[in-house]
Design a protein around this nucleic acid. Structure first.
Length: 111
DNA sequence: GAGGTGACGACCC
DNA sequence: TGGGTCGCCACCT
């Protein structure tokens, strides 16, 4: 009741903290939540992220390889356009300099 | 009500 | 070193 803060909602909270021009991975979020094996759930969360309120910048979330796996779910090249609009270089559906712009919640949100 | 699927990732053989 | 399988939580049929 009150607020069923599930793993799902927790994912949204982390993704919303991802700054523009930076990207993160499903596993990084899952690992930050203490469930790196639940990376799949993170991906599913991104699917419903479009229906979440407030909307979650799912376009900043890519897989471990930096590939825009969810690009097709956005509908066309929307995901790539959004990333490039933020200054992220995308080539062949893959984020360039991925390790450089990689935003790790386990580190950035480390307190 | 139960089973299967899914934007992934890690572990096992 | 590489391929295959399991796991995890939520949503859909």
């Amino acid at each position: 009741m009150a607020q069923d803060y599930n793993f799902f909602d927790n994912v949204y909270d982390v993704v919303r903290q991802v700054p523009a021009g930076r990207v993160t991975s499903y596993g990084a979020i899952a690992a930050y939540l203490g469930a790196k094996r639940s990376s799949r759930v993170v991906g599913y969360a991104m699917q419903v992220a479009g229906t979440a309120n407030p909307p979650v910048p799912a376009h900043r979330v890519v897989n471990r390889q930096g590939l825009l796996t969810g690009k097709f779910h956005f509908g066309g090249n929307t995901m790539q356009q959004l990333l490039e609009n933020e200054g992220v270089q995308v080539e062949e559906n893959q984020v360039q300099n991925f390790k450089e712009i990689f935003w790790d919640p386990a580190i950035e949100l480390a307190l």
